[in-house]
Computed example of a mutant assay.
Amino acid sequence: MRAEEENNRRWPPWLKPLLQEKFFVQCKLHADSHKSECNMYCLDCTNGPLCSLCLSFHKDHHAIQIRRSSYHDVIRVSEIQKVLDITGVQTYVINSAKVVFLNERPQPRPGKGVVNTCEVCYRSLVDSFRFCSLGCKISGISKSFDKKRKDRANNHSDSDDSYSSTLNKNEDMIHNSFTPSTPPLSAVSRRLAKRRKGIPHRAPFGGLIIEY
Rank of each mutant, 00 (worst) to 15 (best):
N7D: 14
N8T: 12
N8E: 15
R9S: 09
R10I: 01
P12E: 00
P13N: 09
P13Y: 02
P13E: 08
W14V: 02
K16W: 01
F23H: 03
V25W: 01
Q26N: 13
Q26A: 10
L29S: 07
H30Y: 10
A31P: 07
D32V: 08
H34P: 12
S36P: 06
C38V: 02
N39T: 03
C45W: 01
N47G: 09
G48F: 00
H58N: 04
K59W: 01
H61L: 08
H62K: 15
A63R: 03
R68A: 13
H72T: 14
D73G: 05
D85E: 11
D85H: 10
T87I: 10
Q90D: 09
Y92T: 09
S96N: 12
S96G: 03
S96E: 14
S96R: 11
A97R: 11
V99R: 03
V99A: 04
F101M: 07
L102V: 03
E104V: 02
P106C: 01
G111Y: 12
G113D: 14
V115A: 12
E119A: 09
V120A: 03
S124Q: 08
S128I: 12
F129C: 13
S133A: 09
K137T: 06
I138K: 08
S142W: 00
R149E: 07
K150T: 13
K150P: 00
A153N: 05
H156E: 14
S157D: 12
D160T: 08
S162C: 09
Y163L: 14
S164H: 08
S164L: 14
K169M: 11
E171S: 13
D172E: 15
N176D: 13
T179M: 07
P180Q: 06
S181R: 15
T182P: 03
P183D: 07
P183N: 05
P184H: 07
L185Y: 13
R190C: 06
R191Y: 10
L192T: 09
L192Y: 10
L192E: 13
A193Q: 14
K194L: 14
K194A: 15
K194S: 15
K194F: 03
R195N: 05
K197W: 11
G198S: 14
P200F: 01
G207V: 00
Y212H: 10
Y212E: 07
